[in-house]
Nucleic acid binder design. Structure first.
Lengths: 148, 148, 148, 148
DNA sequence: TTTT
DNA sequence: TTTT
């Protein structure tokens, strides 16, 4: 019955994070991530193929993304596929798929906003929870969770 | 630049494979796979959440799927996210996401059509290629590749 | 700095779990898991290659393993590589590698000890923690956590 | 029967690659890769834990590693666990575990030896094979496969 | 022995 | 629409 639904991505952000602060301390960040693969076609020409992914992060992760990620950032992502389905104005069934991020790691060089900023820690909901055992809300992480 | 786009799923088929035999020995199979997660909500009630995935398999894998998979089959899948984008009749941008399967493994018990049938081998495009060095078509595997 | 260390296995147990109940409610289970790959060699002969993995599970997971897994069980495992290093009696550096299991899922058919037993839920430390917020010990899960 | 044995790592090299050119155009490279995780202990102190992995690459990949990787390089690795077992001089069973690399991707900034050098492509045996269908040796990739 |  |  139980299944596995796991996504692993390494890519670069196509834009700065879009962050919304909701009521009750909830925060959601949406990221556009490009994963590019390159190969040679039958003629031997190099071809590049880019897939764009819609990522969704919540709360502690969303805050870290807001603070440290920006257009061009390279990240490692682990998450799961999550789709919304609805009916559009014409009564057609519609579906939109995104990646719910469970943890991410910043890759590569020191970010611009250095000065004590983290380089690439692994920000997971679980570690957030682990480092804030006193947190009361069911949300996985609070501001003071930022692991640095 | 280069990235990683990897999906790992374990779930059950919601229906028999839909297989289309195209010109030039090409075959494509479409599968509907359910991955279910169960958890307890704040009230302690057990909640089940099912995500449905559209899988696409080609050629050798499609043939194996056609022959051995059916509604209810439990499989392990490795693949990548691949989306099609287009404009609908109203000029709106549309996007549809599916999983391009790179390898799969049948899980669990012996299939009904036993009698020499495979139990759960790992069917990858690569192994297909490896075992059919004489294959002419660009397709990765031919019928006689069935790895058993 | 931060890195990723992830292992994904699907295989069968070579023996019943070995479980040790330690002081302070700690429990550890050790499993031997076989992952088999089959391929054809240059001569076209089918070759099977089995890799044996030493798995280590703690507390809530260990208890579930003790109760539901046995020789032959097929499971999906997610974990990380963890090695111990020491000096042997001759002063040589020695190293032993095992897989620290973070979550596992039972695959395939109904277990023998049926009668309400779980078939294949996903037992992760996190979900254990999530469903036992009142647990006092630092261990992630208690007996009454069994997610069913 | 068939199983899954998959390892995914992101880390840094502890030393330059060790490369051996064998007879018959075979090449093997051995890498030492560190994956570091950081967390806070019960006292709230930041703790770092580093795991060292022995990686083994062959042929085309080994050549690319030799040319572009060095001490400190950050890479994404996909591979499988592979152990050697033997009896030591005292008749004791010994086992050594390494990661057989199936593909890797260079992460982060442009390497020092820039000037046309690849930034971070994905070097897999399969793509090597795919782009060199005329290769005769069973080895997956030849020098002229370098995907750039 | 890496990385921060 | 699967699975339990």
């Amino acid at each position: 019955m139980a299944g596995v639904n796991k996504v692993i991505l390494v890519g670069n952000l196509g834009a700065d994070p879009e962050v919304k602060h909701l009521e009750g301390d909830k925060v959601v960040a949406n990221l556009r991530l490009a994963t590019t693969e390159a190969y040679k076609d039958k003629m031997g020409n190099r071809v590049e193929n880019t897939e764009w992914h819609d990522l969704e992060l919540w709360d502690g992760q969303a805050r870290i993304a807001e603070q440290y990620l920006k257009k061009g950032s390279q990240i490692f992502v682990e998450g799961k596929i999550k789709s919304d389905t609805w009916q559009d104005e014409n009564g057609n069934n519609r579906k939109r798929t995104k990646i719910r991020v469970l943890s991410f790691t910043m890759l590569g060089g020191r970010p611009d906003n250095a000065g004590g900023a983290p380089q690439n820690n692994n920000y997971s909901q679980q570690s957030g929870k682990a480092t804030a055992p006193s947190a009361v809300s069911e949300g996985p992480a609070e501001d003071d969770d930022l692991p640095f």
